[in-house]
Write a protein that binds this DNA or RNA. Sequence first.
DNA 1: AGAATGACAGGAA
DNA 2: GTTCCTGCCATTC
Length: 117
Amino acid sequence: MLTRNMKAKPATPEQRILAAIRAVPRGQAASYGAIARRAGLPGRARLVARILGQNDDPALPWHRILRSDGRIAFPADSPEFLEQSQRLRAEGVDVRNGRVRLLEDEATLDAAVWGPR
DNA sequence: AGAATGACAGGAA
DNA sequence: GTTCCTGCCATTC
């Protein structure tokens, strides 16, 4: 009911990014750039990275976010790298050489974020 | 205010 | 298919 205050945008950029991340279906992966884009913040891929780094919510599927080339963003020798590949495999994602197959069909992620039509 | 840094992206070599 | 280099954004020195 549009009382006072029509800010109509209760979600801060951070909120929208977190929402976009949570919207990535289990067993699938998306790039930082794709998340930023889906959150309505094109060009803010690095912001997505920053948010993830500060995030403390254990329920956030951070492991589903990778670089645009499908490569895990952590150094191959870091514990985080291992953790991420392990989590991805646990969801049935084929992790070959620190790299996965991300969604080629952006519409799928769109649907997950904006809702199926 | 200028320089350096980082869970990035995209095009060139 | 890979590696390198440049561009971008936001934050911290």
